[in-house]
Design a protein around this nucleic acid. Structure first.
Length: 397
RNA sequence: GCCGUGGUGGCGGAGUGGUCAAUCGCAUCUGACUGUAAAUCAGACGUCUUCGGGCUACGCAGGUUCAAAUCCUGCCCACGGCACCA
């Protein structure tokens, strides 16, 4: 595998617009990347939920860029660290079971796949799990690791300061988290850690340890978090504002379109690899069309061009023209049961009360037909039922 | 070990005997407006219902009362502070 030493190419990768911080320095990093030496670069994710989102995708795409330069890249799933939980701003995170974490991780592997070229036989990306080494550490090892840091260094961390000031608890095990993540760097003996800015503290712990234990300089590349430039809001699953990577083509397209307009440009930069000089042309298409363009582009990365095209057509058909999507859940007519009962049974609606609320709110209608205002409505012939803005159910007679 | 505070709906957080299925904020859902946007406005937001009302819920278990999230007893859990530290 040829290592790219051309500085202009390297700078093009670094300067796409996601970079936030480089430690110890950008110049040093460039000189390392262009030295012709094959570097080992890693990024870590803790599988704490079912799906990655577009913010993670940004980081992985950046990692792929570095891989294409010829360097060895590792995607580390923190199956061990996920169980302890990275300290949160306000509280200690809940600890997960091993089974739970492994289940999440297996899903994440699939979501990562489209973003890097795993078919590259010369320089394929590598996936690792940190339980492999963290599980083996003895108490003595841990104490040895801990001796490299002071309590002052730990509580200096912003989130701990805030908690201490507000009288909220800071648990001892939370200090272990940076140690663990730091030890990952040592165990894999990496040259560079790629992360988002929220991971800087942990990444720096790895820098410290790598220097003290392996006597090696570890570079940290921190990418900015994908956030709304107007409100500053992060993509977040809990607020339902994220675009999750396990969505179907149609849903992902829809989720992208539902993002505020001001996100379009950021998505262009962070989550596509279209040349930067096309940005202006695309943004000039107008807010809606630019967003559609980007949405199709991103869906294409995960589901292929053809499916992306499909998703766009389906979107236009369904939402702009008021049609119905080409695929939807189907249910069979049962003369003994009301529509509401069937939908609750099949988990399309959580409860009968909810069904009644939807009816009262005027959310349920027969496609191309009138609203259903009777909660005990029993379908008698094949039709399509629309519930809310985007739930369509095909009724089969 | 001692002292103190507190455990309420997805979250934050009111409520301190009745009008409490529980103020309010966030999140969510629906409607209007639209570009499935966003912003805004309106409504909903335990569950079952023959739409009268049931039932289950304010850490757990008992009790007092016509009536308890609210009072009493016991228990469990959490946090803060103090003390102890060969």
């Amino acid at each position: 595998m040829q290592i790219t030493t051309d500085k202009a190419t390297i700078e093009r990768v670094l300067d796409r617009g996601m970079l936030d911080t480089v430690l110890p320095s950008r110049d040093f990093l460039i000189s390392e990347l262009s030295s012709g030496r094959r570097l080992r670069i890693y990024i870590g994710f803790d599988p704490t939920g079912t799906a990655l989102h577009l913010g993670h995708a940004q980081n992985l795409m950046f990692l792929e860029d570095l891989r294409k330069l010829g360097h060895e890249v590792i995607i580390l799933f923190g199956d061990f660290t996920a169980r302890i939980g990275d300290p949160d701003k306000s509280s200690a995170r809940q600890q997960l079971t091993k089974e739970q974490v492994l289940e999440y991780a297996s899903g994440w592997v699939n979501q990562v796949r489209p973003l890097l070229n795993f078919d590259d036989t010369e320089n394929p990306p590598v996936i690792q799990y940190n339980s492999e080494w963290l599980e083996k550490l003895s108490f003595a090892d841990v104490i040895q690791l801990a001796s490299h840091f002071t309590v002052q260094q730990m509580i200096e961390r912003d989130m701990f300061q805030k908690r201490i000031q507000s009288g909220a608890p800071v648990y001892v095990h939370e200090f272990m988290y940076p140690l663990m993540q730091g030890y990952d760097s040592v165990a894999m003996d990496v040259d560079i850690e790629l992360c988002a800015t929220d991971q800087l503290f942990n990444a720096l712990a790895g820098r410290t340890l790598q220097k003290k234990i392996n006597n090696k300089e570890k570079h940290v590349i921190a990418l900015r978090l994908v956030s709304n430039p107007v409100t500053g809001e992060l993509m977040s699953k809990s607020r339902g504002s994220g675009v999750l990577l396990d969505l179907s083509a149609n849903d992902m397209y829809g989720a992208l379109m539902a993002q505020p307009d001001e996100m379009t440009e950021i998505f262009f930069t962070s989550c596509t690899r279209m040349p930067l000089d096309q940005k202006e042309t695309i943004m000039d298409m107008g807010p809606r069309d630019a967003k559609m363009f980007i949405a199709k582009e991103i869906v294409g990365i995960f589901h292929g061009k053809e499916n992306a095209e499909h998703a766009e057509q389906s979107f236009i058909e369904t939402f702009r023209k008021g049609g119905v999507p080409d695929e939807m859940p189907e249910i069979k007519i049962d003369a003994k049961k009301t529509l509401g009962e069937i939908l609750v049974e099949q988990k399309h609606i959580p409860s009968k009360s909810e069904w009644k609320r939807l009816i009262d709110g005027g959310a349920v209608s027969i496609h191309d037909g009138e609203k259903i205002s009777d909660a005990s409505f029993v379908p008698t012939e094949s039709c399509v039922i629309k519930i809310g803005k985007r739930m369509f159910i095909k009724i089969l007679g």
